[in-house]
Amino acid sequence: MAELKGWKELPIGGVIDKPATAKEYQTGTWRVIRPVHQPENCIHCMMCWLYCPDQAIEIEVVDGKPKMKGYNYYYCKGCGLCANVCPKTNDKLPEEKRAIVMKPETEFQD
């Protein structure tokens, strides 16, 4: 999180005086459940990429086709939308068969 400015340093009126400052906002600090990508089950349909509200799905283009690469945890707020829309993820599938597994943050050290 950027250091908070005092009232004398801020633009007046609550105006944000430069574009794209949301890029500096680490929405990842909100996350309590973490989506984990399991590439072996992924069909690279890009549903998660389309729906993610924070553009936290990282992709690469291979032979003109997009591939799901994983997550940008700086921005991923853990809403779980990606897992919800993923055709290869649902509650009935055993965890090891899912393309996305939602895990509590407490299971991670970083």
Binding site: L4, K5, G6, W7, L10, I12, G13, G14
Partner: peptide, 9 residues
Amino acid sequence: DYYFEHKRQ
């Protein structure tokens, strides 16, 4: 985090 500062202005 910022509303108070804007009121102070």
